[in-house]
Every structure is written in structure tokens, then in C-alpha cells.
Write a protein that binds this DNA or RNA. Structure first.
Lengths: 205, 205
DNA sequence: TTTAAAATCATGTAAAAAGGGGATGCTGCA
DNA sequence: TGCAGCATCCCCTTTTTACATGATTTTAAA
């Protein structure tokens, strides 16, 4: 029995590329594609593939959110994250949301096939580069910040001062001060500059 | 006479996708691909295509640099920038370095073909989204900063204080102060936080 | 329902950045 | 050769952050 595969990616060229790489693979059946989260979910209401290859970087609802949504409704579908970036933060978030594997877009046909057959058996698969990135997690841990802290962080990056943030959020300036202090501690940064840089790079803003 | 096309992209899936999109196009002849800047230049020493589709975002030497290198040696080759991002900064840099067009990776077969035939005639081509992004340039101009300013900017983002930067660069703290002041003016930002955010987002760091 | 985490507020000092002004030598380019 | 742009330096004031320390109220989870 062949493995039914579906793709969700907003890049036409990537979809074509994957189709081209998989078309001569007898064990794999191409079911089609969606170019955004909504049409992916719409498709699943009628038909369910075994494996979804999912771009993590899509306009609108990201692959990371879509992954969670799909897994909630269809726990039997296995998801492989697909991206040009091998950033720990992305991979980690994808796995947290129920993905079974992660493959970079520079993967070869062999890698792609291996990934699909592996996750279809219920196992996990990482491309070499992704696995290497994951091993660095202990070094560059993603800080766990609260809703409010994230809100304040965003406004800091916008260039607002503590006083302005306080006014905007209807809280005391002292409170903003505290949030800011905690952000610096959680990010292990010593001032606003490195805090913002790290946050932007980790895509937390 | 068919147009000879070459691809330089580090993403295997994208190469396959483009090949798949172009294979039934009689007016276009697929010459092959390279997955990095070096092998692209090596290829050109023996054979020259009419048009190169070039990813702007490659490890090592970026497409932006490669574009310049190719145009210096082979002014007759037309280059189309290829990217997942429609950021003004990227498009602008690519055009500055001699590219004739810019296409997003979510382009359709029709768009891609149109781009290739257009630039092969010596004209320029932008995908709709890229053109739209370019029109915003007046709003979000990329600041022109000097070498020294860029150096200081990098150290600011690392979290160094003016005193520390001064010590590191063997200059006075007052000088660093001035550079910092000028950076704020050039980026039209009002403090360190928004300066760093903007700089990181524009990939200047 | 207890408890831990999060969000809120305060007071005070020291350090750093922002904002304003002005000045000098160097250098690449027209 | 002249001049614009760059890099360098200095003064001053005000605003903002950083760091320390402690406390109260809300909220969410066990």
C-alpha cells in the first residue's frame, strides 16, 4: 500500500519540485497541494493523507499553528516540517506542536523519501542539518516569556519608553520596569540592544 | 532560437520545481544548475547561458555578491533574482548589482516564462508583488551608513556600551557617541531598541 | 482550595543614552 | 585643487535604563 502524501506550501516552485522528486516513487502517492493553511484544512475535511509536508513559513497562519490545528483534529496524520531555515527555534516549535519530522528544502530525493517512509511508520525523522541544529538547543535556549512580557517586549522594540508603554497598557511605569528587568534576565542579556537583537533573531517579535 | 537558462540555487526542491515548470517550454533550453556561487562561476568559464535565475539567499557568497561578479565578467548574461522574500532591501541590492528582474518563488509558470523571455530581450521584469514592494522604497528607505557606523552598529547590537565600544575600537567614547547619534538620525529611530530592531530586520547586522 | 506563577506597584541610586551644540584633520574624487 | 563626506573629538543637560529590594493582588493550575 502506497503512502498518501499531501503538501502545504505557498511556494509554487517548491511544490513542483517536490512533486517532481516524488513522482517516480512507487511507494508514494501524490494527493495534491494547498498553498495556505485554510485550504489545507478545507481539503482535510474530505480526504486525509498519511503524511503532510508542511512549510513552516507561510503568510497568514503559519505552519507552526497549522501543525497544531491539524494534529488536534486528525491525530493519525503525520506531519513533516519543511523550511529553508534550520533554526532550532523553528524546529523546536514545530515538534512541540506535534510534527514527526523536519526536512530542509535543500534535501535530496533520497532524504525526502526516507523522511516520508520513516514518519509514515510513526517514527521521527530529522535531516542531518536539522538534527545538528537541534543539538545546540541547550546552548541557545529559547526564553519562556509570559504574555505580558511579550507584549512589553514588542513595544520596547517599537521604540517606546517605559513611560509610554505604561500609558499604552494602562499600568504603572514601575510595572513596565519590572517586566523589562525580567526580560533582560530571561534572555540573559545586559541591555536593551542585545535584548532586541536576540528577540528579533528568534522571531519573537 | 531558444533561450538558454541556468539556475543557481542551494535548494534542491526549488531547482527541481523550476526545471519542472520550464521543461515543456519550447522557447527555453535548460542548461543545468549550480548550488553555490563558486560552482556557478566555474560553470560559466566553459559555457554561458543567456539568462541566470539566481537565488539571492545562498550560504557563503550571497546571490547579491554573485550577481555583481557575474555581471563584471559577463555583461551579456541577464540575471533574474529569485527569492522567497519580497523585501525592498533585497530587491534593490540585486538591481543595484546589475540584475534585470526579480521573481518570487511562489511565481506561476506563466510568470516565470514571462520573466525569462522579457529579460532575454534586454528589458527588466518584476513580479507583481516585487514591483509593489519596490514602490514602498520611498517610505522605508535603506539607510546608507558608513563602514565605521556599521561596525559600531554591530557592537551596539551585541550589547556593548559606548565606553566598551570605544575601548574595543581604540577611539574616544565621544566618537562612539557621535556615531550612535548619526545612526539614530539615519535610521529615523528614536532610541536603541528601534534602531536595533530595524537593523536586524534589514539584515544589516 | 491551596499554591505557585504572573502581574502589579513602590523607592532609591547609579549608569547609560538621547539631544543639542560646535570643532578639527583626513581623504577620495571631480 | 578644492570640497564634500568621513572619522574623530569635546562640552553640556535631560531623559531613560539598569540594578537592588521588597510587597501586594490576580490568575491559573494542581
Amino acid at each position: 500500500m502506497s503512502i498518501k502524501v499531501f503538501i502545504t506550501d505557498d511556494h509554487y516552485m517548491v511544490i513542483e519540485g517536490i512533486r517532481s522528486l516524488l513522482q517516480h516513487e512507487p511507494a508514494i502517492e501524490w494527493m495534491g497541494h494547498a498553498s495556505n493553511a485554510e485550504s489545507c484544512l478545507a481539503y482535510l475535511r474530505n480526504q486525509q493523507p498519511d503524511v503532510i509536508l508542511m512549510d513552516i513559513n507561510m503568510p497568514g497562519q503559519s505552519g507552526i499553528d497549522l501543525c497544531k490545528a491539524v494534529k488536534d483534529k486528525y491525530p493519525g496524520i503525520f506531519i513533516i516540517g519543511l523550511s529553508t531555515f534550520n533554526q532550532q527555534s523553528f524546529i523546536q516549535k514545530m515538534m512541540d506542536n506535534g510534527a514527526s519530522g523536519y526536512v530542509l528544502k535543500n534535501a535530496t530525493q533520497a532524504e525526502l523519501t526516507a523522511a516520508i517512509t520513516t514518519v509514515a511508520k510513526g517514527q521521527t525523522y530529522f535531516s542531518d542539518e536539522a538534527a545538528a541544529a537541534l543539538r545546540h538547543i541547550s546552548n541557545t535556549q529559547i526564553p519562556v516569556i509570559t504574555r505580558r512580557e511579550k507584549e512589553v517586549l514588542g513595544l520596547i522594540a517599537e521604540g517606546l519608553t517605559n513611560t509610554e508603554i505604561a500609558a499604552k497598557l494602562f499600568i504603572s511605569q514601575a510595572t513596565v520596569d519590572t517586566h523589562r528587568k525580567n526580560l533582560l534576565i530571561k534572555f540573559q542579556t545586559k541591555n536593551t540592544a542585545s535584548l532586541v537583537k536576540t528577540a528579533v533573531q528568534l522571531q519573537l517579535i
